[in-house]
Design a protein around this nucleic acid. Structure first.
Length: 544
RNA sequence: GGCCUUGUGGUCAAGCGGUUAAGACGGCGCCCUCUCACGGCGCAAUCCCGGGUUCGAUUCCCGGCAAGGUCACCA
């Protein structure tokens, strides 16, 4: 068999030799410790938490080491393409402060492009031609039906499925057979002529998983599809080599194809990058857990967190706590430091998959929001409201002064202790709604209606908007005493049976009347913000 | 089914031959207190199972079991 001739027949014309690409894309002149990492999504436009998870790891490792993070678009499968997807990915990640140094749609030197795989087709073909010429790849004319039948047979025979060894029928086609098939216009793919033996295992050092055993590959995988576009495997080897990636951090669903990639790098004469296969985020699905899936878990898309109004920093902090187990401790010690100062270590990444825990995220969110200044909080809420809020909520921002007072009170600013009531923007705006409108619904009163009205009437009779907090509350105590409630908690606790209840019960009536809720920040302060007219109006409304 | 990976409280986890087995979230209780929140204190709850090795195994070895991933001209 004249492989040289075969290569020319299959891929006629001039293709640059591999050396030319080596020269065109030379090693980057970076320090040996600098990591070049990448994100290589397919352009579906859908990103979920799992993607963010990997993205943060790649970003940290690259930028912390003085390296490069680039964006490559794996658009070899046109079925996956969605318009505007690339911009959507960049935008979504920018929200979480992940920035690329180069790549698709990124301003930069971009000396290692193009970054869309479809635009790199000639490069892949050049390497494929070289492989064919060297006898390391061959055309395969098997149809989908052929392959399906093969798979059935292998399954029935309890053999490993796939195109390999004695099952690789086209592997040993004669020149005449190939000529005939070509002449007949049969479509074909290019397959790798694998040299491996899966019985032979190697120890491989994965940056995350540690030492793992990897069998040799014997699958004659497709490297060029019938449309001349490469498969992921082939494109991965060529791109990550030519773009001089030093570390590939990707989901562990790729672990199973590592043998293929290793053989590809070897047969192409490329130096292998380092690999880190990280566990995927899991979610409970009924009784069992499974990895996050874009198909099944739309609520875990990044868009979901934006819509809910989670602060990006909260999401990022949560991702970081899952990514590096010592992050939480570090963050506790350095609450004021930028997140980028945390010494991220790939070796600290977990070997097993973490279950996504909304409770934990919510707790982190509360802490993050409680650390914002009133201005920062207002900005955050405004941005969210403009995109997702109701017209009523957007109107909150017309009176900045009032909003500031509301937020200052609800965040506990000025007091000795910050409050931590807020989790998301959506929930926050909902939480402060009573400052802007009569509460749509009310918590149940603990006392009966007669008592409620008595409290309300007594309050209305003595209310003076000019009273300070001290005087105001002393009046509440008087109302309590008049109605047979203990004015002092001390007294009530000493002898509960002597009273109908305590001043707490009376205060609750007022609280529900004004805010609709049994729980709120300091009531007197709320009334000050509401203003006397509103206070009187709500007193009347509460009677009904 | 084959191959690979992983198994410490409900969740995230520290631990790497000898520990009262950290810490965080969640739960529960108490204190503070006009409510809530904050804060403080406390409680319950864990080393998948079985064999080894060892004076001693959560830690090492073997075997189970369970969970996850993967077996495409998708990435």
């Amino acid at each position: 068999m004249d492989f040289q001739k075969l290569a020319e027949r299959l891929l006629p014309g001039d293709y640059p030799p591999p050396e030319q690409f080596e020269a065109q894309y030379p090693p980057r002149g970076l320090a040996p410790s600098a990591a070049v990492t990448r994100l290589a999504p397919s352009p579906t436009g859908f990103i979920h938490l799992g993607n963010l998870f990997v993205a943060i790891a790649n970003e940290r490792i690259a930028h912390q080491s003085g390296g490069v993070l680039y964006l490559r678009i794996e658009d070899t499968d046109l079925k996956r393409k969605v318009d505007g997807a690339v911009e959507a990915v960049i935008e979504a990640l920018r929200y979480f402060d992940i920035r690329f140094d180069e790549g698709a749609e990124i301003d930069g030197p971009n000396a290692y492009g193009p970054y869309y795989q479809r635009a790199r087709a000639p490069i892949y073909r050049a390497y494929a031609k070289d492989l064919i010429a060297r006898g390391r790849a061959y055309p395969c004319f098997c149809t989908e039906e052929d392959l399906a039948r093969l798979r059935e047979r292998q399954t029935a025979e309890k053999q490993v499925t796939g195109y390999y060894g004695r099952y690789a029928r086209c592997r040993d086609l004669t020149e005449e057979e190939i000529d005939a098939a070509l002449a007949a216009g049969k479509p074909y793919v290019i397959r790798l002529r694998s040299q491996g033996d899966p019985a032979v295992k190697h120890i491989f050092r994965d940056e995350i998983k540690g030492e793992i055993t990897v069998p040799e590959n014997d699958q004659d995988v497709v490297i060029l599809k019938s449309d001349g576009i490469p498969t992921y495997h082939f494109a991965h080897a060529i791109d990550d080599h030519l773009m001089r990636t030093t570390l590939v951090v990707r989901g562990e669903e790729w672990l199973a194809s590592l043998p293929i990639h290793l053989e590809l790098f070897d047969v192409l004469g490329f130096r292998r990058p380092k690999y880190g296969h990280n566990c995927s985020l899991m979610k409970m699905d009924g009784e069992s857990r499974r990895k996050l899936s874009k198909r099944k878990d739309p609520e875990l898309s990044l868009a979901f967190y934006r819509r809910e109004g989670y602060h990006p920093r909260a999401v990022k902090v949560y991702m970081l706590t899952l990514l590096n187990s010592d992050f939480e401790e570090w963050y506790g010690k350095h609450p004021e430091s930028p997140l980028t100062e945390f010494p991220f270590r790939i070796g600290k990444m977990s070997r097993s998959g973490a279950l996504f825990d909304l409770n934990k995220l919510n707790d982190i969110s509360k802490n993050e929001l409680s650390r914002l200044s009133v201005e920062e909080m207002a900005d955050f809420l405004r941005q969210w409201a403009q995109a997702f809020g109701s017209p009523e909520q957007q109107a909150y921002f017309a009176d900045e002064e009032k909003l500031s007072r509301v937020l200052a009170l609800c965040m506990g600013i000025g007091g000795k202790k910050r409050r931590k009531d807020f989790i998301t923007a959506a929930q926050t705006l909902n939480e402060i709604a009573y400052f802007y409108a009569v509460p749509a619904q009310r918590d149940a009163y603990r006392v009966d209606d007669v008592t409620r009205d008595a409290v309300l009437d007594a309050f209305a009779a003595t209310y003076d908007h000019a009273d300070d907090a001290q005087v105001w509350f002393s009046k509440v105590k008087i109302i309590a005493a008049d109605l047979g409630f203990a004015a002092e908690m001390r007294d009530f606790k000493a002898d509960p049976s002597a009273y109908r209840g305590s001043v707490a019960d009376v205060a609750e009536v007022l609280r529900i009347a004004f805010t609709g809720r049994a729980n709120s920040p300091d009531l007197w302060s709320i009334l000050q913000i509401l203003g006397e007219d509103v206070v009187r109006a709500r007193l009347r409304a509460a009677h009904a």
